[in-house]
Design a protein around this nucleic acid. Structure first.
Length: 571
DNA sequence: TTCCGACAGTGGGGTCGCAAT
DNA sequence: ATTGCGACCCCACTATCGGAA
């Protein structure tokens, strides 16, 4: 298939806002690709959802500066691009960047203007055509003549778009496609798309949405899916990247469970080192839930699971461990102990779901049934949980209070009868986290892009620094940015207001007089290597503009330091 | 030779508008 | 009305390469 065919189609997709119309165009391309080879079809499928086939190429937005002038005639094949990217991906050592960029430049030089836009979008990961996996699924369904739900189901169970596309498009007719898709099942060694959670502002609101529920701690860690079969144990992240070699403690913990085959869902996190100061904490949280456990008496007590009484370490510590490659990892160090730093602190595995045990798939089993299986299988690794409902929320409230007192994020409320809805952010799981608010001052603002082009969007936020600890006396210290929470009306208002306050436009960043106060919601304050106070906002979003409030009444940096210290818990 | 900055690619994430239901 | 999806971009981390010290 010529790249120009794909490029023209994607321009068409970008030009309409109708989801249906986008899917129709996608379906047309898929039908055309069906006559080509399997390799080409896979590349077309990936490009339709806006991604290269290579997970890492070493090329990004920076490599796209100074593109050559576009070609006038379309000559490139879709596979030409894939070949170049595959070649870029395997470059290493001295001169690798140069060789990668030359490969990209050569492709761009042979591409017409629309083709250049497509390639640039794929390389930068920002195609922004209003079509990603969701639209691709609908297009696949149209092309194969099957319901979108059939494709979606197969995709969440296989986790592999190309494989599902081959299954759907390779069938002789719609009936055959339908049964081929229906035959896709959970398979050991192939991760499923993890179930995601919606969020609610309060426990009551969450219980209102779920009805009778299982309420569990929400931990601030990294999501893991663990499979165990006769070959051993393997571990994947939320985006289905395999991290088995990095998490030997997870492998060991699951290998020790009394089962032959397993698929588990959970979280890994770093815990604070235990010191003498923690003894009291542990004793006081012996019953971490305060309510009756679902399915067992001992589920929430520390008992054989001392981790339940330990405070979590900052997320950065967990992140660091999960991101560090180890022997056995692709690209990891060749041998153990070469750096002489010894073993890092182990991560704790905490489980909250079981999707398969010893030949039995549990995806469609009710939440409470899966909880029973989990508590039977791994009582010491199970996250604390209790039953809850809008009518009787006391136990759930106590569990939430206990989680927060220990320094965890909050709770997840799970509809008691819901199946494991792989890949969906449905209403069956609802997370509830406390929200902090601060009044901060806008120090600068960035020009918006995409649908925010022409507006002043991303706010640079600062707190008052009245003692001049991080700058001139009586000034402000920057703590982070946010573009979230703004309605179009708010966006228009702040654009006008900030233009009036502008003092300089420094290439994309408009400096303003520090006069506009904004009410900001955030999940917490974290240490920062980036900002002068050594602190940054976590998940900041705008709640409201406060033109009525003078900047002199905004929060001070010492308040953030207090919040940061409080998160670490009692000394 | 060693150090450091820039870039790429992971992890964590909230809220909006729009189309479809 | 509600839901699903894509867009909007955040901060943290590690790994890698290339050039400065």
């Amino acid at each position: 298939m010529l790249l120009s065919v794909l490029a023209a189609s994607l321009e068409e997709v970008a030009a309409t806002s109708s989801r249906r119309a986008k899917a129709e165009v996608v379906a047309g391309v898929l039908r055309a690709a069906a006559s080509g080879g399997a390799d080409e079809r896979e590349v077309v499928v990936r490009y339709l959802e806006g991604e290269l086939r290579q997970r890492r190429t070493g090329l990004g937005w920076r490599s796209l500066a100074d593109p050559p002038s576009p070609a006038t005639e379309p000559v490139l094949e879709v596979l030409d691009v894939d070949t170049a990217m595959a070649s870029a991906a395997v470059q290493s050592g001295t001169g690798a960047d140069g060789r990668r960029r030359r490969l990209l430049q050569d492709v761009l030089a042979a591409a017409t203007a629309p083709e250049q836009r497509l390639v640039a979008g794929l390389v930068s990961g920002e195609l922004r055509q209003g079509a990603q996996r969701g639209v691709l699924v609908e297009g696949l369904a149209l092309a194969a003549g099957v319901p979108a739900a059939a494709v979606r189901r197969a995709l969440t169970l296989s986790g592999d778009v190309a494989e599902v596309a081959a299954t759907a498009l390779g069938a002789a007719d719609p009936d055959a496609a339908r049964s081929a898709l229906a035959a896709v099942a959970l398979r050991l060694g192939r991760p499923v798309s993890p179930m995601l959670a919606a969020s609610a502002p309060s426990l009551a609101a969450a219980l209102e949405r779920t009805g009778t529920a299982l309420v569990e701690w929400k931990l601030d860690g990294v999501r893991v899916q663990v499979h165990r079969d006769e070959q051993g144990v393997r571990v994947w992240t939320r985006t289905l990247e395999e991290v088995t070699a990095r998490l030997p403690e997870v492998v060991a913990a699951v290998a020790a469970l009394p089962a032959r085959t397993l698929v588990l869902d959970g979280e890994v996190l770093a815990l604070r080192r235990r010191g003498p100061d923690d003894e009291g904490t542990e004793a006081s949280t012996g019953d971490a839930g305060g309510g009756s456990e679902v399915g067992t008496e001992a589920g929430t007590g520390a008992g054989a699971a001392p981790w339940r009484a330990r405070r979590p370490a900052p997320f950065q510590q967990t992140s660091s461990r999960v991101a560090t490659r180890r022997p056995g990892d692709p690209g990891g160090p060749a041998a153990a102990g070469a750096d002489g730093t010894g073993s890092p602190d182990p991560l704790q595995l905490v489980l909250f779901d079981v999707l398969h045990r010893d030949g039995e798939d549990l995806l469609d089993a009710p939440q409470l049934r899966r909880r029973e299986v989990l508590l039977d299988l791994a009582p010491d690794l199970a996250v604390p949980g209790v039953a809850g409902s809008a009518e009787d929320p006391a136990a759930a409230a106590a569990l939430s209070a206990a989680a927060l007192a220990l320094g965890h994020e909050g709770v997840v409320v799970k509809a008691a009868q819901a199946p494991y809805a792989a890949g969906r952010r449905g209403a069956a799981w609802v997370k509830v986290k406390p929200r902090l608010t601060l009044d901060l001052v806008v120090l600068a603002v960035e020009h918006g892009s995409g649908r925010r082009r022409g507006t002043l969007s991303n706010l640079w936020l600062g707190a008052r620094d009245p003692h001049g600890r991080f700058g001139p006396e009586g000034g402000f210290v920057m703590l982070g940015k946010t573009f979230k929470g703004l309605t179009d009306t708010m966006l228009a208002w702040q654009t006008e207001r900030l233009r009036a306050l502008a003092v300089a436009d420094e290439g994309g960043v408009v400096r303003v007089r520090p006069e506009l106060v904004v009410e900001i919601a955030l999940d917490g304050v974290q240490t920062s290597p980036r900002y002068p106070a050594g602190l940054a906002l976590r998940f900041a979003r705008v709640l409201a503009h406060r033109p009525d409030k003078p900047a002199a009444e905004a929060d001070v940096v010492e308040e953030l330091e207090r919040l940061h210290a409080a998160a670490a818990g009692p000394a």
